[in-house]
């Protein structure tokens, strides 16, 4: 069934390294998205017309454009149009952060809109100034709502990292492909075992995280 190739040499280790590449891209992108998304979300809530229009367009692009298309745009497009040479991994980080920032900012905007005006008023009445009100009263309330989504976003990003092999990043699936190629003669059926293993690896990476996200969502429902 082709599982035997996994135990040849350091094949399994290579697969795990590929998985780590995927995880790394996701984690960095989520961290960037959290910070930028919070900033953008607050900016949008200030109701500046230009910012609102811009973020609407940004959101709609993220909503309807496949991440794969965005990856192509950045990876192939940037070098052609801007003359920049962006590495595949940097392209992936840019695209994932672009996507995550949009989702986060929308969540922040929604959460801010859901906080009743009286929260601000009662905070002012206690003597907080607007900045303190944001820092001590408002933002802590929305951060709590952001955490389950951030975790959920991590799993979606891990899954999406499988796409980056298409622009040449060596992640799990690519390593799997290489292993199958290298053992074509000795294990002609390697594709079954290796791809099943990749499938299971992705599941093992995403499942606990998505459980955690669900758990936190339930716990912090209010």
């Amino acid at each position: 069934m082709g599982f035997e190739v996994l135990w040849k040499g350091n094949n399994m280790l290579r697969l795990l390294e590929g998985l780590w590449a995927a995880l790394r891209i996701s984690l960095i992108s989520v961290a960037v998205s959290l910070v930028l998304g919070l900033a953008l979300g607050i900016l949008v809530s200030l109701k500046l017309r230009a910012v609102q229009v811009l973020s609407r367009i940004w959101l709609e692009i993220v909503r309807i454009m496949p991440q794969m298309v965005l990856l192509f745009l950045v990876y192939f497009g940037a070098s052609r149009v801007l003359g920049l040479n962006i590495s595949a991994e940097t392209s992936a980080l840019i695209v994932f952060s672009f996507w995550g920032t949009a989702e986060m900012s929308d969540l922040v905007r929604g959460s801010l809109a859901a906080i009743p005006k009286i929260q601000y008023e009662s905070s002012y009445s206690l003597g907080f100034d607007p900045l303190q009100t944001y820092l001590y009263v408002i933002i802590p309330q929305i951060v709590r709502r952001m955490i389950p989504l951030s975790i959920n976003l991590i799993t979606r990003m891990i899954k999406t990292t499988s796409l980056v092999m298409m622009i040449g990043i060596v992640e799990v699936l690519k390593v799997g492909q290489q292993i199958i190629e290298a053992n074509r003669k000795s294990s002609p059926n390697a594709a079954f075992g290796v791809y099943l293993t990749v499938f299971v690896l992705y599941f093992l990476a995403c499942w606990p995280i998505s459980r955690l996200s669900k758990y936190l969502e339930k716990k912090w429902e209010n």
Binding site: K159, T160, L163, G176, Y195, V198
Partner: peptide
């Protein structure tokens, strides 16, 4: 909890082997 691409690879390249 798994990516479509990996599902497709398994169905398209893996299953024929069995």
């Amino acid at each position: 909890n798994t990516p479509l691409l990996v599902q497709l690879f398994f169905i398209y390249f893996g299953l024929p082997k069995v």
